[in-house]
């Protein structure tokens, strides 16, 4: 059987909110080492990879590896019934066709349970190679959210260029053009306000803004976001989910026809 308890249930709520617009359904794979998900959006332009480690949970038990086919809009409906301060326990028997969610209020005076119907989903698992990137940029997640929101109101695609001057986001559309440049900045006492640009070589890539904006639905999960860029490869937009794990979004670039 599978059983996992997370005292900070709001994390699970935020994770599903971060995913559900991008991914309709997918398999959450459970194993003794934790929970993971790999899913593409319907147009196969981007991929979401979620890893939650067993030791990040308050309690984790999984006797047998199994995929749990989840419809994320339905998962979200149930998680919306959990209070922000609730502890959430997930439970499923081996080869179950449902996932039980139990919500406990922080003073344990209210307990509720819901069953989510599981689906059988055929999915291919892609191998994502470990690699070095030409540029890695850490910035406040709220800053990333603001940039992609602002630029989406101007254009459809963004040219992201990383040089020793900083990281520049450029777009254009019917309205006109927009450029936002962030410079390396570690002056704040608060680390989450830093912008750290780790540049091995200059790189410039073009991406569809609507996906980058969609990734910012994960903003509530982490104070900082990391962007990783290499020529002719997908951008990686990564949020650390506390001690629990991380969520990574991979977006394929626009390439010359």
């Amino acid at each position: 059987m599978f059983e996992a308890k997370i005292s900070q249930g709001s994390v699970l709520k935020k994770l599903v909110e971060a995913l559900k617009e991008l991914v309709t359904e997918g398999n959450i794979d459970v194993s003794p080492s934790g929970m993971s998900l790999q899913a593409m959006d319907s147009s196969h332009v981007c991929l979401v990879s979620l890893v939650l480690r067993d030791d990040g949970f308050d309690h984790f038990r999984c006797d047998r590896n199994m995929p749990m086919g989840i419809h994320f809009a339905n998962f979200s409906k149930i998680l919306k019934c959990a209070g922000n301060d609730d502890a959430i326990t997930l439970k499923a028997e081996d080869n179950a066709d449902q996932l039980t969610l139990m919500f406990e209020s922080s003073n344990q005076d209210r307990i509720s349970d819901f069953d989510l119907k599981l689906m059988s989903i055929e999915s291919e698992h892609l191998g994502i190679p470990d690699q070095d990137y030409s540029a890695e940029i850490k910035m406040p997640a709220s800053e990333y959210q603001r940039i992609v929101r602002d630029l989406t109101s101007i254009g459809d695609t963004v040219l992201i260029s990383a040089t020793k001057e900083g990281i520049k986001f450029s777009t254009s559309g019917d309205v006109g053009t927009a450029n936002v440049t962030l410079r390396h900045n570690t002056t704040s006492e608060k680390q989450e306000e830093h912008t750290i640009i780790d540049l091995k070589e200059p790189v410039a890539l073009t991406f569809a803004l609507r996906y980058l904006k969609n990734f910012s639905n994960a903003t509530a999960l982490a104070p900082q976001v990391k962007l990783s860029l290499t020529k002719d490869l997908p951008i990686v937009v990564e949020y650390q989910v506390g001690e629990l794990g991380n969520i990574r979004f991979y977006l394929a670039p626009k390439i010359d026809d």
């Binding site: 196969h44 332009v45 981007c46 991929l47 695609t157 073009t206 991979y250």
Partner: peptide, 14 residues
């Protein structure tokens, strides 16, 4: 002119 690449083409098994 640029076109949108497919994400699967960048990873093994895609």
């Amino acid at each position: 002119q640029q076109k949108q690449a497919n994400i699967g083409s960048f990873f093994t098994g895609g």
